[in-house]
Design a protein around this nucleic acid. Structure first.
Length: 254
DNA sequence: ATGTCCGTAACCTACGGA
């Protein structure tokens, strides 16, 4: 079983890259963020032509999350209670409960959007805390938080900014405290493995990245993971997203 | 520290958001 999470920064603009990536890597499930589409525009048929069912929660210009699967797709849930923005979708594929998350950016520590981000993460924690612990779960997405200084190219350069503040990091730790494991760190405790590089300043080739996209799973599922990695190749070439996909591979029969 | 990209609305340019 191969699962990926990828913030595509507009599925409309990124379709050629997404299609090529799926053909090449043949994932079973892909958790997508920032489709920037409504359902009318979402390429359900194009995914079907590749052999994938899809579920989408979009709102048009901003946000938008999706789950695509070639291992079945049932029981779709959209959104967080009281959240007007399309940032969360869940579905069951091959017996696993999947969540695709697009956490608010936060903008800056003194912006109201930052408090929205903290509230959003607390709502997500509440949802996960109430889940059925007998069902395997995998949650992935763009969390817009670098969990530790190892996840930042230069901690001093980001001091006082969003993505690295202690309250955000505590909110992510609280998510993990609902019995989830960070699959990237689980297998590679000391590798930076950034997932996002700013389009500006030649950040990618200078190595100025952050690890802000994650795949989390319950401990029993995490124990079956044989590989977890970032596909940096997807950040290169023509018209890339500013995020690279995070991939996990694991034994799964059901 | 800000050299880019994306979608939109309104028009071939500016703006908000990231």
């Amino acid at each position: 079983m191969k699962v990926a999470t990828w913030n595509v920064n507009s599925l409309t603009a990124r379709w050629p890259r997404v299609e090529e990536w799926i053909r090449r890597h043949e994932p079973d499930v892909v958790l997508i963020q920032e489709t920037k589409q409504d359902d009318k525009k979402f390429p359900f048929d194009a995914f079907a032509a590749l052999g994938y069912q899809s579920a989408h929660y979009g709102q048009g210009r901003w946000n938008g999350v999706a789950i695509v699967s070639r291992r079945g797709l049932q029981d779709v849930e959209r959104g967080l209670v009281d959240d007007p923005e399309a940032r969360l979708i869940a579905a069951t594929c091959a017996g696993l409960r999947f969540y695709s998350c697009y956490v608010p950016n936060g903008r800056s520590l003194d912006d109201p959007h930052y408090q929205y981000k903290l509230n959003w993460l607390e709502s997500l924690r509440t949802l996960l805390d109430a889940r059925d612990r007998t069902q395997p779960v995998m949650m992935g997405g763009d969390f817009n938080v670098a969990m530790s200084d190892l996840d930042v190219y230069d901690p001093a350069a980001l001091e006082g900014m969003t993505h690295v503040s202690e309250p955000e990091r505590a909110a992510i730790r609280a998510l993990l405290a609902t019995d989830l494991v960070d699959l990237g760190r689980h297998l590679h405790a000391d590798e930076p493995s950034f997932t996002w590089w700013d389009y500006r300043n030649g950040s990618f080739h200078r190595g100025w990245g952050l690890r802000i996209d994650y795949l989390f799973a319950d401990a029993a599922t995490a124990a079956r993971v044989s590989d977890a990695y970032v596909d940096r190749e997807a950040r290169k070439g023509d018209k890339p997203s500013d995020h690279a996909p995070v991939v996990a591979e694991f034994d799964w029969n059901s």
